[in-house]
Design a protein around this nucleic acid. Structure first.
Lengths: 233, 233
DNA sequence: CAGTGGTCTAGACCACAAG
DNA sequence: TTGTGGTCTAGACCACTGG
């Protein structure tokens, strides 16, 4: 346990946490204003501000101008998932990473894709089917399409030596995305690829990545049985 | 798209992002120091600091004293999962929430639990088995134990009217935890409870919550088929 | 050692929203 | 209208760590 001075922002943060845990300040309660607290703690208001903002980010406090700062009624548990590049993930689980690019072809978006992602019918997409391995054993199976209208350069890349995943991460440094996590039963082809029984429960990630209004890529990733994604809060 | 002035920290943040996306600053590159940037932007160093710290938190920049600030080589994708109380989750999915407390009993930790969670063999735990429902249909099945040495007050609570989950959230406002997400095949009893086929792929969450060195509670939660946990980055 | 980020201060002005 | 948080400034000192 690290101890902080009470006129450091971390110290103020722990003190606030202590008061909440002690139930001096209960859920829904209004806590003193920044000015009052800075007087209590004998520090600058900016220091209190830093501490309270941090706690508000964490979902512990609710702050509104003029209305003041309250202890959150529904302390949302926020878990920050670090989603590593698959290669790192496989390596971290003690394996040597490799992958097979099973197939790659260009196509134009189906009506379904056009609607779902607001894609122009005339653009080209690349479809990629990849089996990721750790120590040569199947680790995850990936189905992906990439929007060539956004990243045409990828046609120049050798996607058998670097995975599309990594290429994209390094060439589109910042982007919005949506993740969906679910569980699906292995289909027969998936079972063959992942060397598991048909119907086995597979941890599944769906991801769409956007650059402004245009989708860059969408992925469906099914992990071999036993995979677990861990997060520390 | 919101536009910020370049001497606000948000403005500086977007400008830095722009330079990274333009590849003026490439992954691994050292970017100018805070002092240099504050001169370039005509603002105080603290403002630049705020912007760069934000980007470092997001995993876009790597910062080290004396070594300076670099564009991250492995831009970690961080997804912030908001993990709501089950009731809210069920309600957000358009249902009326209810639950059945199937069983509740006190016991002392098995050798296995003692080892895994460093539990004293003499303390008492409560085991709870709960079926959560949305619109009366099974939503998730929960197995949980709670450490009475840490929260003895819970024996006073009526856990048939408020779920243990919510009681704990409101009485242990801040705590560390670990989440694990995986997929499991429905066992026969789970299939009965969740009204699905045996073997169906179920999204599963394991959670352990700690208060200092002592575990407060551990939960295994299996969701009815079709559940998907969504996160926006 | 010296240069970088990390933090604190005292003061100021602004933006928002409750009354 | 007015009290609250949100932000910026100019300056200062500190903590870490690379050279």
């Amino acid at each position: 346990m690290t101890i902080y001075d009470t006129n450091s922002w971390q110290g103020i943060k722990s003190e606030v946490i202590r008061r909440i845990n002690d139930r001096q300040w209960q859920p829904g309660d209004l806590i003193p204003s920044e000015v009052e607290l800075s007087e209590q703690f004998g520090c600058a208001r900016a220091t209190v501000n830093r501490a309270l903002q941090d706690l508000a980010d964490a979902g512990v406090l609710d702050r509104r101008r003029k209305a003041g700062t309250r202890v959150a009624l529904n302390p949302v548990r926020k878990a920050t998932l670090e989603i590593p590049v698959i290669r790192k993930d496989a390596e971290a689980r003690g394996g040597t990473y490799s992958f097979d690019l099973l197939s790659q072809q260009e196509f134009t978006p189906s009506a379904n894709l056009q609607n779902k992602y607001r894609l122009d019918p005339n653009i080209s997409l690349v479809g990629l089917y990849t089996l990721h391995r750790a120590n040569l054993k199947p680790f995850a199976y990936e189905e992906r399409w990439i929007n060539l209208a956004v990243v045409p350069e990828i046609t120049q890349a050798d996607l058998t030596s670097i995975s599309a995943n990594e290429w994209l991460v390094n060439h589109t440094p910042l982007s919005r995305g949506e993740f969906g996590f679910s569980a699906t039963n292995a289909t027969k082809p998936e079972a063959l690829l992942l060397q598991c029984d048909e119907g086995a429960a597979l941890f599944t990630v769906n991801r769409v990545t956007w650059s402004g209004e245009a989708p860059i890529t969408a992925v469906r990733l099914v992990y071999a049985p036993g995979y677990s994604m861990v997060s520390i809060v």
